[in-house]
Nucleic acid binder design. Structure first.
Length: 583
DNA sequence: GTTAGGG
DNA sequence: CCCTAAC
């Protein structure tokens, strides 16, 4: 809430949070797109499962579904999730043929390229087993990069349901294709990274490392196998019967769009397999007092004398990635587009968050043991990882397509989805609801953040320069137009304090509005003055009541006059002093 | 760190 | 909203 220090003096009470933090103008142009998102709040996600967790997790199918208690009051979801997983497990899981990878296996190489991490301790071989069992594509898979999309698209927005090459967590890896070992670059880069245990405090076992990829792929994106399907409306995601082609894992996702933490069970053999939430990580924990962890990448192994806690991040999803693409675009370009969007989404501004028993652990220097993450601690029952923005604003990428036919390409992610990850955060300016009295941001604030615009017409020349632009603007804060009530509060404060005292204005009227800096207020005042001076027809954005604009002009005039007279006085003083000095 | 102003 | 100069 806005501080009432000023407000009370002026008897003003009307201030409230702007209902919607909006995306930059570039995003707002895509109204149709936003509409999709609004109408279909949570129904058109691209789920990117990036994991190396293999069929290992499903060695014991029946035990997978066990869950002791509802997580954060979403019991129903959990139950459904379990059911779904179970079903697909039964349907899709196949016996696995063991394959052992040598230490120098190209598989390791491929892992190192990946964008996400999965946590394993000495389990690479097992992972590989599941990978090796990968079969060919299923009916959903589109292999031909040059294939036209048209046959599958009815003119509505296409929503991609993307999966990485390896999606073992849902037991469907038998359907996915293992990238050609040893030929990674040409076939696609694995979306997974293994991070192995370390002994020191800061690099705890089971670290999740979203790979920061400042530069989205320039040439052929390494997208790997993706499943593509269209949806026309949200309802299409719901009943499975309407989509005979929808795989069980898909239903699994469709039914579980809501955010909730992923529970980690203490025992490897009894894992809660609740579906991961957006930005939440599915983890698994293994207990052992003395563990041998092999570091495949370095061909080394070590024995730790410490008690080790093994964590396993099974997968996580990228939420609400919307893609709009001409039906004449090729499948390859679509894949590239998705890859870029996903890369962008994950590349910048994300860090790993950790919650123990629902409480955020901010101190990175704490040991796991101090945090309560130890092999014999019950806290392991509620260990949550999350991906959260590490910077104030999500990355805005704008790679402007040149071709007219490709104008409307705009993958969008709904940033509100990560809101609840930040539920206890007050340090993020991303979500005004947080600092304005805990409104339900998911309901009231849906900043649509464009994460990428992809040039589908292969007009490479412009990409370079645009890329550098992207990097330059990567940390630009999200645009958040002032609401009328904010303007009112600002006007009130300036009326009282005058211009030129922006820090005080901030403290007086916007103290708790973390996303409004005094520079912002100063800038807003500047634009308000300008707005008040121009004709109403020339004004843009949410109309500011004329009454307020009048007050702006009045205050501006008054304080300008004050400054003038002040300066005049100073000048007089100076000249008098000079005159005195000359005498 | 604040303020002012251009971009 | 960003950047920077000036204080």
């Amino acid at each position: 809430m806005v501080s009432h220090k000023c407000v009370e003096e002026f008897g003003y009470r009307g201030y409230e949070l702007p209902p919607n933090a909006r995306a930059p103008r570039s995003a707002r142009k895509k109204r149709s797109f936003e509409k999709i998102c609004e109408d279909d709040d949570q129904m058109c996600p691209i789920d990117l499962l990036a994991t190396v967790a293999g069929n290992l997790l499903f060695e014991s199918g029946s035990s997978l579904m066990s869950i002791d208690k509802p997580v954060n009051g979403i019991e129903d979801n959990c139950v459904v999730a379990q059911t779904s997983v179970k079903e697909e497990f039964e349907e899709e899981e196949k016996p696995v043929k063991p394959v052992t990878l040598s230490d120098d296996s190209p598989y390791q190489e491929s892992l190192s390229h990946c964008g996400f991490s999965s946590v394993i301790s000495g389990k690479v071989e097992n992972e590989a087993e599941s990978f090796s069992n990968s079969g060919r594509s299923d009916s959903c898979q589109v292999e031909d990069f040059s294939q036209d999309l048209k046959p599958g698209i009815d003119g509505d927005a296409v929503v991609l349901d993307a999966r990485p090459n390896i999606v073992a967590s849902l037991g469907s890896c038998s359907r996915t294709e293992l990238p050609t070992v040893g030929n990674v670059p040409s076939h696609g880069v694995r979306d997974d990274v293994n991070m192995f245990s370390r002994d020191d405090d800061e690099n705890f076992s089971g670290y999740i490392c979203p790979r920061v990829n400042k530069k989205p792929p320039r040439t052929v994106p390494r997208i790997g196998d993706r499943r593509i399907r269209k949806i026309l409306a949200s309802r299409h995601w719901k009943g499975g019967s309407r989509h005979a082609d929808v795989k069980p894992w898909r239903n699994h996702y469709l039914n579980h769009q809501r955010n909730y933490p992923i529970k980690i069970r203490r025992n490897f053999d009894h894992i809660s397999d609740s579906i991961s939430d957006d930005y939440r990580l599915r983890t698994k924990i293994h207990r052992g007092s003395r563990t041998i962890s092999s570091r495949k990448g370095q061909g080394a192994s070590f024995v730790s004398s410490d008690s080790q806690v093994k964590l396993r991040i099974k997968s996580f999803r990228v939420p609400e990635l919307f893609v709009e693409i001409p039906e004449t675009a090729t499948v390859g370009s679509l894949k590239r587009m998705v890859m870029e969007a996903v890369s962008t989404l994950l590349s910048d501004g994300h860090r790993v968050g950790l919650m123990v028993q629902g409480k955020k652990v901010r101190d990175d220097n704490k040991t796991l043991y101090q945090t309560g993450i130890s092999q014999d601690n019950t806290h392991l029952d509620s260990l949550d990882f999350s991906l959260e923005p590490s910077s104030e604003a999500p990355q805005l990428l704008t790679s402007y397509p040149l071709g007219q036919a490709c104008e409307e390409l705009l993958p969008v992610c709904n940033a509100s989805n990560i809101d609840n990850v930040l539920e206890s955060d007050h340090d993020s300016a991303l979500f005004p609801s947080d600092s304005f009295g805990k409104k339900s941001a998911a309901d009231e604030s849906k900043p649509l953040v464009p994460v990428a615009r992809t040039d589908m017409s292969h007009q490479q020349p412009c990409r370079r320069s645009k890329r550098s632009e992207q990097q330059q603007t990567a940390h630009r804060r999200i645009r958040r137009p002032f609401s009328v009530s904010e303007v009112e509060a600002l006007v009130l404060a300036v009326e009282k304090l005058g211009t030129g005292r922006w820090r005080e204005v901030k403290i007086c009227a916007f103290e708790d509005a973390d996303h409004r800096t005094y520079v912002d207020l100063k800038d807003k005042w500047k634009t308000l003055v300008h707005t008040a001076k121009i004709s109403p027809q020339q004004r843009r954005g949410e109309p500011v009541p004329q009454e307020l604009l009048d007050r702006v002009l009045n205050a501006h005039g008054y304080w300008s006059q004050q400054h003038e007279s002040k300066n005049k006085q100073q000048q007089e003083t100076v000249s008098q002093a000079e005159a005195l000095l000359q005498l």
